[in-house]
Amino acid sequence: MDWLFLFEVAIAGLGAGGLYALAAVGFVVVYKATRVVNMAIGEILMLGAFVFFGFASGLGWPPWAAVPAALVVGGLFGGVVERTMIRPMLGESPIAVFMITVGLGSLLVGLVELVWSPEPRRLPAFLPDAPIFLPTPWGEAYVSPKTAYASAAALVLITGFMLAFRYWRGGVALRATATDRGAAYTVGINVPLVFATAWIAGSVAAFGAGVLLGAIGGISSTMGVFGLSVLVVVIVGGLDSLLGALVAGLLIGLLEALAGTFLGGEYKLLVTFGLLVVVLLIRPYGLFGTREIERL
């Protein structure tokens, strides 16, 4: 057994998992606050990558300006979607809202293809690219710098989200709303504002994941399929759990890397969906999800 190689593969997998986790956080924040299953998460992520591309390549902005600008646009985007598409659906059946998000996904693909044309592109490099070597008992392990930095950035964002959830008063309001919407109104919480905030935060997370993912592998209008893996991550982790998103993201990133390397690329999906089925059988509400939450 080549332990060094195994270590390198595992690190690469965890790195990819960090991005899964960030996108999954984008999903979970929205689901937790509003109980909306956001099927457009992959496409929102893709839009984020293209918006960054627009700022960085189209307008020629330096990365330190283009990244925050993309995140700001992500926030605006989330706010607008909530206000125009989701809020009018308040009180409608969950399936109707679910379909709205499916529609939103196709809309975004169309929009991106209209504005930027569908062919794949590279993002201007903005992550440091000096190779990283980690000392291990088996020798120096090579770590792809792009994956490492992207994943580190994702983990920083996720940590920020978790701290805000726990300690910020707005985070408390969001969790209160998630637990009991009616009671949240009675204690003076502006529930519609909480919903809007959740969409804004969730879209910022998805835009961030899109920018980082694009920085590693380039961008194209089909990036949205990443959303499928994100859905698997949130179902495994629990739809309403940030910690679940983090743990399941890393776990699935790791599993995919190991399966892809040692069994072959065609086993990646098999292994993730295998894990999905096992988790659903044992814990239908996900590893960290709240029990009463219905299955997706």
Partner: peptide
């Protein structure tokens, strides 16, 4: 104060009060 108490069950006592400071 709603019928059936309706505390935020997933939150701590203190967090319940923090949430109520919005009032």
């Amino acid at each position: 104060v709603l019928e059936g108490r309706r505390v935020f069950e997933d939150l701590t006592v203190e967090e319940n009060l923090t949430a109520a400071t919005y009032a």
